[in-house]
Amino acid sequence: MSFPYEYIFKYIIIGDMGVGKSCLLHQFTENKFVPDNPHTIGVEFGTRIVDVNNKKIKLQIWDTAGQERFRAVTRSYYRGAAGALLVYDITRRITYNHLTNWLTDARNLTNPNTVIMLIGNKKDLDGQRDVTYEEASTFAKQNGLIFVESSAKTGENVEEAFLKTARLIFQSVQEGNVDLIPDGGITKGNNVLPTPPAEQPKNCQC
């Protein structure tokens, strides 16, 4: 029997409210699509063990609230992420327009080796498309992101998005570009649990 898993990668999913971040998480971890999912007010958490180059890797995925008012708070969850999935909704241009802000946050708050993947979600609603593939693809190229259009509803490209990111992170680890323990984003072995984003208060209630 080999290790249940050899590495743990921390992912964050970010992007505007309603672009389908939680649906992507559920589709990936449970193969389930829940329509009318309530907005995430906080940070949800899911795990899945995947295979990369015959290594078992556990993905720890933090799905963050997209609302603008929580922006300052969700920033605290970026730290140490090995992968960031930056999601927009192909049927709502506004969510695409906000990518620059999200990307700035992601770049500032994660380390330089963090793999950022751009995901145009709701591919199943091609009829209501508001952002072309080409445009987003160009944006991704300009910013050095990998890009994929997916549908959390049909599951199309969901697996690919998560796995592609994992492969790139793994490659990075193998090439020695990434320390194994930057804030717990990539860890070897088995025992990482979600920990609060900030320090514990000291004997202090308020």
Partner: peptide
């Protein structure tokens, strides 16, 4: 086929000195 639990644990242990005790 019981896994190599203790090997695993010691590895995990090594990687956690920075992260503190998982809650």
């Amino acid at each position: 086929g019981v896994s190599n639990a203790s090997v695993n644990e010691s590895l995990a242990g090594l990687s956690h000195h920075k992260q503190g005790i998982p809650d």
